[in-house]
């Protein structure tokens, strides 16, 4: 049943995605200065949204774990962080390809790029921390603390962006964003299939985590006697 639901979600996501790509290529005109490459933004920005949503979910599940001591929250926390890192990587790489075309360089120490990289490293540290603790309950507790501390840094990282000069195009969704409504609709429209894919990945990962936990318990049971 669970599998069928996941496959269903996958099909919906794939359908939406194909429709979006079709629309993107046929219906939307090129951006005046950037040419076709600007369409990368429809993946670049939603990937960042997904990543930060995932990191936020990791914070929430960290708090929930400390409250309830229920290891399901811990499984959710790892899954969400890993998927967040995957989407974060997608965001960074698409950003680099875009920068190569528009700015002529792969990487620039623009603060938006740097802070995304920093968040990425922060949550990669979370995964490293998990590998260093053997015992599942202790691992869950310490990594919950880690995810709370990590998320507490995120706003500081972003505050500091404002005070550095930035080469990045103005934030597209707020401020004096000159984004056309058609583009904006596409940006959000394309977020939906990406989010659905993220949900599938998270569900699969959580299931693995659950089985791993049962296995560990079983092994202890056998070794103990």
């Amino acid at each position: 049943m669970r599998q069928k639901i996941l496959i269903g979600i996958g099909l919906i996501a794939a359908g939406l995605l194909l429709r979006n790509i079709w629309l993107m290529l046929t219906n939307l005109p090129d951006e005046a200065f950037q040419g076709a490459i600007f369409r990368i933004i429809f993946f670049h920005v939603p990937a960042a949204f997904t990543a930060f949503l995932c990191f936020f979910a990791s914070l929430i599940s960290g708090i929930a774990y400390l409250r309830t001591q229920n290891l399901k929250w811990d499984a959710f926390s790892v899954s969400v962080t890993e998927v967040g890192l995957a989407f974060g990587a997608a965001n960074l790489i698409t950003g680099m390809i875009w920068a190569r075309i528009i700015w002529g360089i792969w990487w620039t120490w623009d603060w938006r790029l740097t802070s995304m990289l920093l968040c990425w490293l922060l949550y990669a540290g979370y995964l490293v921390l998990r590998r260093a603790v053997e015992e599942p309950t202790e691992r869950a507790r310490l990594s919950a603390v880690m995810s709370i501390l990590s998320f507490a840094v995120v706003p500081f990282v972003f505050f500091s962006i404002k005070w550095f000069r930035t080469q990045h195009p103005q934030p597209v969704l707020y401020g004096q964003g000159k984004m056309d409504t058609g583009y904006r609709a596409m940006l959000y429209g394309n977020w939906v299939p990406l989010l659905l894919f993220a949900i599938i990945l998270i569900a699969v990962r959580m299931e693995q985590e659950r089985r791993q936990r049962e296995l560990d318990a079983l092994r202890r049971e056998i070794h103990a006697f």
Binding site: A36, I97, I101
Partner: peptide, 11 residues
């Protein structure tokens, strides 16, 4: 000129 090649790379 429209950078379609790089768009493909990106996607």
């Amino acid at each position: 000129a429209r950078n379609f090649e790089y768009l493909a790379y990106g996607l």
